[in-house]
Design a protein around this nucleic acid. Structure first.
Length: 565
RNA sequence: GCCCCCAUAGCUCAGCGGAUAGAGCGUCGCCCUCCGGAGGCGAAGGCGCAGAUUCGAUUUCUGCUGGGGGCACCA
């Protein structure tokens, strides 16, 4: 598909310069021309409001400027009509060209990238990145859907995309998880907990793991060794997370373990480099601290002078115990990402990680690395509502709704759409009861239904021996062409979604297009007795193109395209 | 106190400086002689407040009000 507005903008800019050369317009710096798509297609398919912007520099009334521009305009071949209305220059797509696009959509199919703005560029999308301490809950799920859709959008824009999952399996949280599992294991055997063991993680899943271990190992693991419990918890938790992700068709290319940054020495190398540039010092308290938080003196820690980059306090990178905080390996990780040569690294994070990501960027800047290549999609928090109350979702307390539960109660497609169809930076209340109740009213079914209806026609057409081979598309009418106009905006939507890192744009476009489709389907009959065979052929061809567009949209959102509902 | 996000229809949300601000759900009318009823047609209903920039502001900026989140030697 082509990015029509860009070509149009260039031709308008060209026309303005030509008008200046010809003396029709005075000389001034030509600004970038913006092409918009008016909401009312009867007005125009595309419009330029540049004449109004130029009223001042040109010292002429906008309609006159518009006329002068049009006089020198050589629009691209797909433009059928150019019209000046008020200060607007309106463009209509040519019907003949639109008919060709029906065939073009079918030829392109659903396999290739839709546009080519990212061809030759590599991107990485890091998302989910949950440590294996529990099942995925709803809060994480939003980032999972956004990240996955972002990856799909970038791929559709022509980028080579790698999906990465960053995790650690070290540290206190995994120890606590292992202890909790040992607790559950002994519980399953009817044994009292080892002195000092507590149930840090209270979720039911660990009780299941404990029972499983009791079945597999009997009482062979009753000595104090924690290692088998850690290994079991990690392996099974990761399997569970991957299985959950698979249900919504999410996969990652690379699972990056924080631990590898220790093994390679990257963590301490990072510290040394920061130190070399004078960004590191040892102290019991930060040198710069503009916050009002409580101050602890836990002995001499190692600090990063993040305040030099505008942070309101310096940050600890190595604790007094000698153990690095999360920040240091995180900086090392991003150095690693940049070293892998991606043109863009997209990082899908929960809003509560905002500060952390800022500090990482300060770290990269301290080392003169290009932090601008890292783009963060900050996904705002999801508040879970149950019985009209906000539920604090906590992995430790075990009182959370898992993504699996949600899928069980609704469907993978419905969950996908619910979490995807809003911009990442708006907070959302997720009313579980309402979600379950309304899952049948989920717009996703309205979108899928457009695809299903096309499939229905082809089934029926095949049964009646009607095919779309050799269709003469001149039989297509205004209703079909109107839909094609709208469908072709998919290219623009992908471009915007990729450029602004906003995959939700696709979700809304899909709904809009379904809205445009159903009335057409209602009025454009194919296999009706009064429809002449050659018209039926052409219309069938049209619906084939429409079906492909819906398939692409559903693919972009990671949703299924069923043949029946 | 500082930082971030948000404020648009009864509800949930779109709206990359432009023409008459859209959709879903809900409400109220109407429509199954058909490939399709998880459908179609129609109605009611809205930009928190005050400034600034601009030919033009729901959109950019500032202040205010209101809501949410974050300010660990946790990850």
């Amino acid at each position: 598909m082509k990015l029509l507005p860009y070509e149009l903008a260039l031709s308008v800019e060209h026309a303005i310069r030509a008008a200046q050369t010809a003396g029709d317009l005075p000389t001034f710096d030509v600004p970038d021309v913006k092409i918009s798509a008016p909401k009312r297609p009867e007005q125009a398919d595309y419009a330029a409001s540049i004449a109004m912007q130029l009223a001042k520099p040109a010292s002429l009334p906008p309609p006159l400027i518009a006329e002068h521009i049009v006089k020198h305009l050589h629009p691209p071949a797909y433009i059928g009509a150019v019209e000046v209305i008020g200060g607007y220059i309106n463009f209509k797509l040519a019907d003949a060209w639109l008919r060709e696009q029906v065939e073009a959509i079918i030829v392109e199919g659903t396999d290739s990238a839709i546009i080519d703005v990212g061809v030759g560029k590599r991107t990485q999308v890091e998302f989910v990145s949950a440590n294996p301490t529990g099942p995925l809950h709803i809060g994480r799920s939003r980032g999972a859907m956004v990240g996955d859709a972002m990856a799909r959008v970038l791929a559709a824009a022509g980028y080579a995309v790698e999906r990465e999952y960053y995790f650690n399996n070290a540290g206190q949280q995994m120890t606590n998880l292992s202890i909790s599992l040992r607790y559950r294991y002994r519980e399953a055997l009817g044994l009292p907990p080892i002195t000092g063991d507590e149930l840090h993680y209270k979720g039911e899943y660990l009780a299941d793991f404990g029972k499983l271990m009791a079945e597999q190992h009997g009482d062979a693991l009753t000595d104090a060794d924690l290692q088998p419990f850690k290994a079991f918890a990690e392996a099974n938790m990761f399997d569970a997370i991957k299985a959950t992700l698979k249900r919504v068709d999410i996969r990652h290319d690379i699972f990056f373990n924080e631990n590898s940054l220790y093994e390679s020495g990257a963590v301490w190398e990072t510290l040394a480099q920061l130190d070399e540039r004078g960004y590191i010092y040892k102290s019991t308290l930060p040198e710069v601290d503009n916050t009002k938080g409580e101050k602890d003196e836990d002995g001499e820690a190692t600090w990063f002078r993040s305040s030099r980059f505008g942070d309101n306090k310096d940050r600890v990178v190595v604790k007094a115990t000698g153990e690095p905080t999360y920040t240091l390996p995180d900086i090392a990780y991003h150095i690693n990402k940049l070293a892998r040569g991606f043109d863009v690294c997209v990082n899908v994070l929960g809003a509560d990680h905002f500060i952390e990501h800022q500090v990482v960027k300060y770290g990269l800047r301290a080392l003169d690395l290009d932090a601008s290549k890292i783009h963060v999609i900050l996904v705002q928090i999801v508040h879970l509502m149950k019985d009209g109350q906000r539920v604090k979702s906590s992995t430790r307390a075990g009182n959370f709704e898992t993504l699996d539960d949600l899928i069980d109660q609704t469907s993978a497609d419905a969950v996908r759409y619910m979490l995807l169809a809003r911009s990442a930076d708006s907070q959302m209340d997720f009313d579980l009861d309402l979600a379950v109740k309304q899952s049948n009213d989920n717009p996703v079914y309205y979108i899928q239904y457009a695809y299903v209806r096309c499939a229905g026609i082809f089934r029926e057409a095949a049964a009646r021996g009607v095919s779309d081979d050799g269709a003469d598309l001149s039989h297509l009418g205004d209703a079909e062409l109107k839909f094609i106009r709208r469908a072709l905006q998919l290219a623009d939507v992908i471009e915007v979604a990729a450029r602004t890192f906003e995959p939700h744009q696709v979700a809304f476009f899909a709904l809009d297009l379904a809205n445009a489709f159903h009335p057409v389907f209602d009025s454009v009959r194919v296999l009706h007795s009064e429809v002449p065979p050659e018209v039926a052929k052409a219309r069938l061809r049209f619906f084939r193109a429409a079906q492909i567009v819906f398939k692409r949209l559903l693919d972009l959102m990671g949703m299924t395209a069923p043949d029946t509902m």
